[in-house]
Design a protein around this nucleic acid. Structure first.
Length: 292
DNA sequence: GCCAGCCTGTTG
DNA sequence: CAACAGGCTGGC
């Protein structure tokens, strides 16, 4: 479901509400979803920060100071090495959501993990298709994850330059340009919506080989990628199907889409009918007149 | 590189 | 009923 602008919007809505809140307990209703290779404790974690990289969210957690009156004997077991911090990595994939609840309510149908918060509410991880994952890492171990470790530059970061995109197109010269944009090792955070919209704004056919595109066009594409991603964050993401942020609110960038899911409709530029084809295994929308 | 597979739900 | 859905992985 969510691409970079949606994940960033979720991060912003959550950090405002739950920074410095304590996760009293992590309850897992579906064992596949919560990955805990270091066998980290599921109780009493203070949320210090929430970061984003590509489509990943990283929660920086610190062991919360416990009240002496609380029954925490299992935590004091000498055979259990207490860890005083950890990183929780969340990937929402297609249908994952992180939803704040003000009170403890009956878990929704596809709620697989619940974070019980010290404010009396909860943060629920809900994911219809169950592709999403939550992974707990001991301090400094977040780079154990291959997908995370091999991410390309952030589209809005200083290291994503036009030259970088030119070199990336050389490296993946035999791939389609859309395939390059969807490759998280090439650039982090772009998905099907923003790939189609960036290529439309740059006037490039999605099925073109990356190696055949002139430098001036790649420079334009670099600029359009940054433009589209920044605009979409401003609009709080795209709610095409069922995306909502951490508070259950929709985004508005669907109102700005030029080609994504617009097949059969006129191009906003020239009026030519938008077409839909398959590129890089994904449905792809473009204007046959504006994109060459 | 490409593409089936991972899952469930919705749409045609 | 089949096709498709905002993503990623691993096996050819």
């Amino acid at each position: 479901m969510p691409e970079l602008p949606e994940v960033e919007t979720i991060r912003r809505t959550l950090i405002e509400k739950i920074q410095n809140q304590t996760i009293e307990e992590i309850i897992c209703y579906h064992p596949d979803v919560l990955v805990n290779p270091d066998d980290i404790s599921l109780k009493n974690w203070l949320i210090k920060d929430i970061r984003r990289r590509g489509k990943y969210l990283l929660f920086d957690l610190e062991k919360a100071k416990l009240n002496i009156s609380e029954n925490n004997s299992s935590e004091n077991n000498l055979n259990h090495v207490a860890k005083d911090s950890c990183v929780m990595m969340v990937h929402l994939r297609m249908t994952g959501k992180l939803l704040l609840e003000e009170n403890i309510v009956e878990p929704a149908k596809h709620t697989h993990v619940r974070f019980v918060l010290s404010n009396g509410g909860s943060l629920d991880f809900n994911d219809t298709r169950r592709f999403g994952r939550i992974t707990l890492f001991a301090p400094g171990h977040e780079f154990n994850d291959h997908g995370f470790a091999t991410l390309g530059p952030e589209p809005l970061g200083y290291d994503f330059t036009a030259d970088h995109l030119i070199n990336t197109c050389k490296r993946y010269s035999k791939s389609t340009i859309k395939g390059v944009l969807l490759n998280q090792q090439a650039i982090a955070g772009i998905g099907n919506i923003y790939a189609d919209e960036s290529l439309f704004r740059a006037g490039i056919m999605p099925g073109r080989k990356a190696g055949d595109i002139p430098k001036t066009k790649i420079k334009l594409l670099h600029q359009k990628i940054r433009e589209v991603i920044a605009e979409a964050i401003g609009y709080r993401g795209t709610s095409f199907r069922d995306y909502v942020d951490g508070l259950g609110n929709k985004g508005f960038f669907q109102l700005q889409l030029a080609v994504y899911q617009k097949d059969g409709e006129p191009c906003p530029n020239c009026g030519t009918t938008i077409e839909r084809i398959k590129v890089a295994g994904r449905s792809t929308h473009f204007c046959p007149q504006c994109q060459k």
